[in-house]
Design a protein around this nucleic acid. Structure first.
Lengths: 253, 253
DNA sequence: GCCGAAAGATGAATCGGATTCAAAAACCGG
DNA sequence: CCGGTTTTTGAATCCGATTCATCTTTCGGC
């Protein structure tokens, strides 16, 4: 029946509102600035209503992360079809992630906080699944690029490593660097600056180590820079690059 | 005077007791199982006394992490002097860290939680500094191995990358893999298993990509395994390996 | 050995927020 | 418009970190 239908729609709209406002709060005041009762009041609902959508504060945070993860993941969809060599497309994936992180510093802090056992334990099962699923398109993109590289002969044929396991390297490198870069004062203590530049160089070393052609010497700053620029240009042209990319405005900070 | 001296010693002993018991608590019941008043009672002190040592719960957690980081860092000291090629010693560093993480799962979760902005913000400045400083020996070891590799010609001479920045690659790879491996259900969702085996392979790819000799093909499982075993044996022989290594027993879980 | 000041320890009271739930309101089909 | 059902409400509850007024201990001088 239609009544029931409208109900569902309204419920979803309200949930979206909660998530949207929560995200704003986090952007403006940080994770600590998010208080359940304040948020509810902001949205002109009672505290209890908020709890009809989210089992707990952590659950809400997971929902926020899921929403942003979807936006993030969407950016990767078009990459496999880019008019670039396979290795450059792999770089495109890394650069896209770096850019996203640069524009959404809260997002990384949030996910980092979320996967912490203490927090993760309080996220309801369906929301955990949803968050994991939201990232799927990224894995799909990576898989596609690695598979094509193998078919095309850019990358030696699979020995004992799947496409996903191949992608795990840059993924871990990425996550690790984000993590180190975000830890207040950590890299400074070791007099390391511009962590993302290093991420790119180590990425090239990693790919070259796997014999992904055309090999590129990570220790040739000008070559690395040129390749970065070339790929960034392709991304920009495809409308994937920087700034707001036709998504809801909310992310563009 | 001597009285004042004794006072200080007693105070330090008490602080050590708090940290030790807190660590036990965390090992047994997880981070959530640590409650300030319970901990104080456990140690037969009043809650307020606990707060004379630690500004906040987070501060205490940082102290626990610092203590364990010292133990962890101590394991790296002897590595530069090991009777192995420079590249193998670099691997030794990575393996040592993997082993430590395997024996101290809580430690990684704890640090991961700590560097989260929300938590880090509540750690007092001196404790932050102490935690950062505790890790210094690791950086020293890495620096030594990289520098020797360059002098010895195993690694091309520095172009535009310092020893620390070189070490940043494996470091980020390590941290990232730990992070991914710790996120409940994440890697399973991508059908990836044995993350540490992959960490080792990607590590070799990274080193080979930087032309660190003797190069080693990450896609030769038997070669990789043999090298891992060889280095593990050397570590065991040097008493750095697995299990309790003459440190306080507390870590050996 | 005794005294008053200073330093340290105590734990009950306070505080901040997440979460709950009994009551009130809105909604429903007839 | 009605009785029953579903939603919403927000004040009360709960939980644990943190504080602080009070009590104890320590200490140097007498």
């Amino acid at each position: 029946m239609s009544t029931e239908d409208r109900r569902r729609r309204e419920r979803e709209a309200r949930e979206a509102l909660f998530i949207e406002r929560a995200h704003e709060r986090i952007r403006e005041d940080g994770l600590l600035g998010l208080q359940m009762s304040k948020l509810a009041a902001d949205c002109e609902y009672a505290t209890g209503t908020l709890y009809q959508h989210f089992d707990s504060r952590e659950d809400l945070l997971a929902a926020v992360a899921t929403r942003t993860t979807r936006e993030r993941a969407a950016r990767f969809r078009a990459i496999p079809a880019l008019d670039l060599g396979t290795r450059s497309r792999m770089l495109a994936i890394v650069l896209t992630d770096i850019d996203f992180a640069a524009h959404n510093p809260d997002y990384y802090r949030l996910t980092q906080y979320l996967v912490t056992e203490v927090v993760w334990a309080n996220v309801s099962v369906p929301r955990r699944a949803a968050l994991l699923e939201a990232g799927q398109p990224i894995s799909v993109a990576v898989h596609a690029v690695v598979a094509e590289a193998r078919n095309h002969g850019d990358l030696p044929p699979a020995r004992a490593i799947s496409e996903e396991e191949m992608g795990l390297g840059p993924w871990a490198l990425n996550v690790g660097m984000q993590s180190l870069a975000n830890a207040q004062g950590l890299l400074d203590a070791y007099d390391i600056h511009r962590p993302y530049d290093h991420l790119i160089r180590h990425f090239h070393a990693l790919m070259t180590g796997w014999r992904w052609e055309p090999r590129l010497d990570p220790d040739e700053p000008s070559v690395v820079r040129a390749e970065t620029e070339r790929v960034r240009a392709a991304l920009r042209e495809a409308g994937i690059g920087d700034a707001k990319a036709g998504q809801e405005g909310s992310v563009a900070d």
